[in-house]
């Protein structure tokens, strides 16, 4: 266990060395947050509530999701695919530790950095300039924290699996781009799923993608209490178990057919 914690810590520190990039990234997230907020403010003009969202809810949703981009690493991640290309994956696989656990540890360390330096400041910007609402109780915060963690693990599993496809093809970039684009839409990142047409919404909420953004968002907005809240968390947990299992199986069949490149 300690070695995975160490992997997390190293990856956290590695990201911390890029201060200027963090600032530029924050400015970009903030700018898009501003644009998305302006659109919602204009849409809501003269209208108190739409699809169960007040304007304040919509703004909270905007800044929360802007903040979640980096912790969830939605814009793609090809670190493992790169090691497959370069051949250095051979030495990673030879290490006496669980390959999946090693990368999960690293990714959680990265996510910790991004929560602290990207999510938190983004939420603060929303709070200061748009007066967004925050969860009102310790319990709500706890539920959100758990939900956020599950979402990160889920997003990691998805990215991990796409990378592992690199064992079969050297062109993962295109696949990654394609999948993540659908993800943008199906997670409820671009528009909350509640705004989707009912038929489409019924399907999309059943998909695992909803567990990445839509569910944490609902919990942050305190749209679910008691039993409903537990059901949402249970749904996320279910998908995490499924995804971890799938990632494991995929990795197993991939390492069987590993052809190391370079030398």
């Amino acid at each position: 266990m300690r070695v995975y914690l160490e992997a997390a810590r190293m990856s956290y520190r590695c990201y911390r060395t890029y201060g200027a990039a963090t600032l530029a990234g924050l400015a970009t997230n903030g700018f898009f947050g501003l644009l998305r907020s302006s659109v919602f403010i204009a849409f809501y003009e003269g209208r108190p509530i739409a699809e169960g969202y007040t304007l304040d809810d919509a703004l909270t949703y905007v800044w929360l999701t802007q903040g979640m981009i980096m912790p969830l690493f939605l814009w793609g991640w090809l670190e493992i695919a790169d090691t497959i290309r370069s051949g250095s994956i051979a030495s990673d696989l030879a290490k006496p530790l669980d390959y999946f656990g090693f990368w999960l540890g690293r990714d959680l360390g990265r996510a910790a950095y991004h929560i602290l330096y990207r999510w938190l400041p983004t939420i603060l910007i929303g709070l200061i300039f748009f007066g967004i609402g925050l969860p009102g109780s310790a319990l709500a915060w706890l539920a959100f924290a758990l939900s956020f963690l599950l979402a990160i693990v889920l997003s990691f599993c998805l990215r991990f699996m796409i990378n592992v496809v690199g064992f079969w093809t050297t062109d993962v970039r295109g696949i990654m781009g394609m999948v993540l684009l659908f993800v943008n839409f199906l997670t409820g990142f671009l528009v909350p799923l509640e705004f989707f047409p009912p038929a489409l919404r019924a399907i999309v909420t059943e998909l695992p993608f909803a567990a990445m953004i839509s569910i944490p968002n609902k919990i942050f907005l305190e749209q679910a209490q008691g039993r409903d809240l537990l059901l949402l968390l249970g749904r996320q947990l279910f998908w995490v178990v499924v995804f971890v299992g799938a990632a494991w199986l995929l990795l197993r069949s991939a390492t069987r057919k590993l052809v190391v490149q370079g030398g």
């Binding site: 204009a42 003009e45 684009l181 671009l190 528009v191 705004f195 047409p197």
Partner: peptide, 29 residues
């Protein structure tokens, strides 16, 4: 082909998002 397709979808979902919002709201500014 994959890259063209992904370039198309990336922007297409944006358009779709806009159309979905216009289902609920009737005008923007």
């Amino acid at each position: 082909a994959l890259q063209v397709a992904s370039s198309f979808t990336s922007t297409f979902v944006e358009l779709l998002a806009l159309l979905i919002l216009f289902r609920t709201f009737s005008s923007l500014g």
